[in-house]
């Protein structure tokens, strides 16, 4: 790992609670929590509100803990990239060992609490998600292969499955479809970002697809993934979870995602400043929130017999 410059006055003052909060990657956590709640709402059966709160807290803290371990491991490449250069581990506000201890402690605590209070299946899935994110994505794949976020994306796909398992205590085809939704959504989401942040990834030595295979190949892959998402987004209602709202909404949202990818495919990024890629990145976040919002509402309504 390369040098990490520290401001001695920052370390002398010590880390504030906000630095630890930042270690948890709150923005990523929002999406994780939202999809977990959607999975919970769509699942058949009832869950006591106190158990539901415990499950949501465990997913939140577990996801944040994995983020903290990720920041500990990636502080050298984070320092090179403008997007991540202000992170507390890069700025020296939190010592690397502190970040690691914080992440490991919270990860173990969240998994144990989930297993004891909510259920062993949900606890095991949370443990698997954390282990996958840290060992498979962060440590193994990210710096080695352009397929890093394709395979590593599985880690972020677990939350709706965990939410479902918190209610039912098992995993069926529908939560696997929710998993597949996020799994297929992740590559076009990250590659849209990587298209306009390509020089930074290149400088940091992270083999993102646009760096290794070029823009054209990346844009084609993005288009293919958005098309593949379409049938998966409308499949859960066909299996009895959700209804016309998920089908209609999923199709509209999915088609807009395909249009975004088509515009990126046609765009000359160098001339436009990757305007379409930036738009697609923003839309991809909206897409996931909206789709899982529909799944939650529609699945919840189905569960209530509406």
């Amino acid at each position: 790992m390369s040098d990490v410059t520290m401001d001695s006055s920052m370390t002398a003052r010590g880390a504030s609670w906000r630095d630890y909060y930042e270690l948890l990657k709150p923005r990523v956590m929002t999406l994780v929590v939202f999809t977990a709640i959607a999975g919970m709402m769509a699942a058949p059966g009832a869950i006591h509100p106190a158990v539901a709160v415990a499950a949501i807290l465990c997913v939140t803290i577990g996801a944040g803990a994995a983020g903290a371990i990720n920041m500990w491991f990636e502080r050298d490449i984070d320092a090179v990239m403008a997007r991540t250069a202000a992170r507390p581990t890069v700025q020296g506000r939190v010592e690397p060992a502190e970040a690691l201890t914080f992440g490991v402690f919270l990860s173990v605590a969240s998994v144990m609490t989930m297993a004891l209070l909510v259920g062993w299946v949900a606890g095991a899935l949370l443990a698997l998600a954390n282990l996958f994110y840290v060992f498979v994505y962060t440590i193994w794949l990210k710096r080695r292969t352009p397929q890093n976020i394709v395979i590593g994306g599985a880690a972020g796909a677990f939350p709706p499955m965990i939410g479902w398992a918190a209610v039912t205590g098992d995993v069926t085809v529908v939560p696997i479809l929710y998993f597949l939704l996020i799994f297929l959504w992740t590559p076009p989401h990250f590659w849209a970002l990587a298209l306009y942040r390509r020089p930074e990834y290149d400088k940091a030595g992270v083999p993102m697809l646009p760096v290794v295979a070029g823009e054209r190949a990346t844009k084609l892959q993005m288009l293919l993934y958005t098309v593949a998402l379409l049938p998966v987004s409308v499949a859960p209602p066909l299996l009895g979870v959700g209804g016309w709202l998920t089908v209609g909404g999923g199709l509209v949202l999915g088609l807009l995602f395909v249009i975004c990818a088509w515009r990126v495919w046609q765009e000359d990024g160098a001339a436009t400043g990757h305007k379409a890629a930036k738009l697609m990145f923003g839309y991809s976040i909206f897409y996931l929130f909206a789709l899982f919002g529909l799944i939650a509402v529609d699945g919840g309504a189905t569960g209530l017999g509406l």
Partner: peptide, 25 residues
């Protein structure tokens, strides 16, 4: 190559303001 973890060079002593801020945090 020196990482933050292996840097054992002496750090400047914190002044009174830093010490108060450290205690507050």
């Amino acid at each position: 190559m020196m990482t933050a973890m292996t840097d054992t060079s002496p750090q400047p002593a914190p002044d009174g303001r830093d010490e108060a801020e450290r205690k507050r945090r």
